[in-house]
């Protein structure tokens, strides 16, 4: 028996060492496979399509390397990018203003109702995105009470809400609000209320306490929430289409029209690639500036 011990111990360690990393990769495989099939390959296809050249026949394109697709897309639809980012930026800002007090209230005053209040925040998403956006058409209709109320105040420059940029931004704000509330709630809920008491105890007024303690500690939630709102909002076209007019089209509408109606796949692809690229740059600058890695 004793003679067996050295052999078994000398063989065992390399086996254990070899198995460990393999198991790790094996667990990663489904995710990696998913990303490869549904993200990497489509993206490469999209990029190749964006460089194809027309053959004359509608919807048929030959392989090529036509950088001009990008120039054409940009000259035709460049202003839509700017409009998309302005709308998405405004919607993100309004969502933040609405969501912050709400998340704060649920986190600190929710008590036993916390769970229920969170369910209520998500509840609207149980109904379809399209359905909810259609509902907003009715709410904001020209003859409706909302438009009537604001007209009575005389604050609407065009005398209506539907088919204006106001409606589009309102729709975007509404539709992406839960994605702002949830991360904000998560980081505010983690915040120890005693830190607020400590700040009060150390001569900070409620306003200063918010600026110096609560806000900085909730920044991870603010960053996550703004990204989850801004990114999908800037690529959205449903709100622009259903609540806006031809003058409020966003970049998503241009991509959709080129792809489905004009069957101009290279242009639609070029627009998509550029949208992804711009968002990537904007987001990396934003994350670097807000320095999330330094936060708790």
């Amino acid at each position: 028996m004793p003679a067996l011990i050295p052999t078994s111990t000398s063989e065992a360690p390399p086996q254990v060492a070899a198995r460990k990393p393999r198991t790790g990769y094996l667990l990663l495989a489904p995710g990696m496979g998913w990303l490869a099939v549904f993200f990497a390959i489509p993206f490469v296809t999209l990029f190749i399509t964006s460089l194809q050249v027309p053959t004359g026949a509608s919807g048929v394109y030959a392989p090529g390397f036509d950088i001009a697709n990008y120039g054409e897309a940009l000259s035709q639809y460049g202003h839509l990018y700017i409009r998309s980012f302005i709308y998405a930026g405004l919607a993100t800002l309004f969502a933040l203003i609405i969501a912050y007090p709400l998340a704060y209230f649920i986190a600190f005053r929710g008590g036993q109702w916390k769970g229920l209040l969170l369910v209520l925040v998500i509840a609207p998403t149980f109904a379809s995105f399209l359905l909810r956006t259609y509902a907003w058409r009715t709410i904001l209709a020209d003859e409706g009470p909302v438009t009537g109320f604001f007209n009575a105040l005389g604050v609407l420059p065009e005398g209506r809400i539907l088919s204006t940029s106001i409606a589009v931004v309102a729709g975007l704000t509404y539709n992406f609000l839960p994605f702002m509330i949830l991360p904000l709630f998560a980081s505010l809920d983690k915040l120890d209320p005693r830190l607020i008491e400590a700040s009060n105890d150390l001569y900070a007024s409620p306003v200063t306490t918010f600026r110096k303690v609560v806000w900085p500690l909730s920044l991870p939630g603010v960053v996550a929430g703004t990204l989850l709102t801004f990114i999908p909002a800037s690529g959205d076209y449903i709100n622009a289409q259903l609540l806006g007019s031809i003058t409020t089209r966003m970049i998503g509408s241009a991509i959709q029209v080129n792809f489905i109606q004009f069957r101009d796949y290279p242009i639609a692809s070029a627009l998509s690639v550029m949208l992804m690229f711009i968002i990537l740059i904007v987001v990396s600058i934003y994350i670097r500036r807000s320095g999330t890695e330094d936060l708790v």
Binding site: D192, R194, L195, E197, A198, S199, V213, L217, V296
Partner: peptide
């Protein structure tokens, strides 16, 4: 006050 769990500002 010196708080029970110190309540130091983590940031």
């Amino acid at each position: 006050t010196v708080f029970q769990s110190y309540a130091l500002f983590p940031h």
